[in-house]
Simulated scan of single mutants.
Amino acid sequence: MAPIARRLGLYAIPLLASLSLPVWAAGPVGLGYLKMGMSKSAIEQGDSSGAIKLLGPLQELKLPTKATVADDYYTTQAVLPFSPDPVKLSLGFKGESLSVINIQLPDEAMENKIRAELEGKYGPPKLDDGRKDEQCIYRNGNSFTLKSGVMSVGWTDEETSTTTALNLVHFQSCPSSLSGDMVRTRPSRSLSIQRRPAPAKASGLF
């Protein structure tokens, strides 16, 4: 399969070269030098290969609720091998260890390229389609159906409890009339890599 990366200065790196792969993996367990378990200070030292370039300091990201996969989140702009234009990079930490990598994708074309690379390496993903159908019905008999919600395709490496997913979030609702504008949000696309926390050990002798 031909590399999908675009040239970054002297670098022309295929996507899968930037994804950290364990032997016999069922999915990536990192992105380039960003590997699960790294500390924030190690990440801020930068990528010695120059493949991933952080364009600013990691800024703390306040979330309304705590997530189970991470205690603290930080965000910055970054240039990646498969995106020569800056993208939003968010990192989550469980304790002092990196547990979440999230990248906002600019368009469907990049999502499709990443999916093709991942399918070529790991096979078909698992589909999780949480979108709901909404029937738009009007008094003149016209009708059509909208889909709203979240759809994801993902690969899970059980050995490392790491899940990689391509996510699409898109909400829309019926216009009040056929001549009216549809209420919709702009589709949001992302690539996420998450490591689930280890389950708590049962107390007692066994």
Results as ranks from 00 to 15, higher is better:
Thr65His: 03
Ile137Glu: 11
Ala116Met: 06
Gly37Ser: 05
Val87Asn: 12
Ala51Asp: 02
Leu205Asp: 08
Gly149Phe: 06
Ser177Tyr: 08
His170Glu: 09
Gly50Ile: 00
Arg195Glu: 07
Arg139Asp: 06
Gly50Glu: 04
Lys147Arg: 08
Ser20Asn: 09
Thr164Gly: 11
Met36Ser: 01
Arg184Trp: 07
Lys201Tyr: 03
Ser203Pro: 14
Ile103Phe: 14
Leu61Glu: 11
Thr68Met: 13
Asp72Ile: 12
Leu166Ala: 04
Ala165Val: 05
Leu58Thr: 02
Gln194Cys: 02
Ser203Ala: 09
Leu118Cys: 10
Asn112Asp: 01
Val183Tyr: 12
Ala12Val: 12
Gln45Val: 01
Gly180Ser: 10
Leu15Arg: 00
Pro64Ala: 03
Val29Arg: 02
Ile193Glu: 00
Gly9Lys: 11
Ser83Val: 04
Leu19Tyr: 00
His170Ala: 09
Tyr11Ile: 15
Asp71His: 04
Pro199Arg: 14
Asp107Trp: 15
Met182His: 05
Gly204Phe: 04
Asn140His: 14
Gly32Ala: 08
Thr185Met: 07
Met36Tyr: 02
Pro3Cys: 08
Glu60His: 12
Pro125Leu: 04
Leu54Asn: 05
Ile52Cys: 09
Lys126Leu: 13
Val87Ser: 11
Ile103Ser: 07
Gly120Asp: 12
Ser39Gln: 10
Met110Gln: 13
Val183Cys: 07
Ser90Ala: 10
Gly92Val: 13
Cys136Tyr: 11
Ile43Gln: 04
Met1Asp: 12
Tyr74Thr: 06
Gly27Phe: 06
Leu105Gly: 06
Thr156Asn: 09
Lys147Tyr: 08
Val100His: 03
Pro197Phe: 02
Ile193Asp: 00
Val23Leu: 14
Glu119Asn: 07
Leu55His: 10
Leu178His: 09
Phe93Tyr: 02
Gly9Met: 11
Pro199Gln: 06
Pro14Leu: 10
Lys62Tyr: 01
Ile4Arg: 15
Ser49His: 12
Tyr33Gln: 03
Thr160Glu: 02
Pro199Ile: 05
Arg139Leu: 10
Lys121Asp: 00
Ser188Glu: 01
Lys132Leu: 14
Thr68Ala: 13
Lys121Met: 09
Val153Asp: 10
Gly32Arg: 14
Ala116Gln: 09
Thr164Arg: 09
Ser143Tyr: 14
Leu178Pro: 09
Ala202Thr: 02
Gln172Met: 09
Glu158Ala: 01
Ser18Cys: 03
Leu91Met: 06
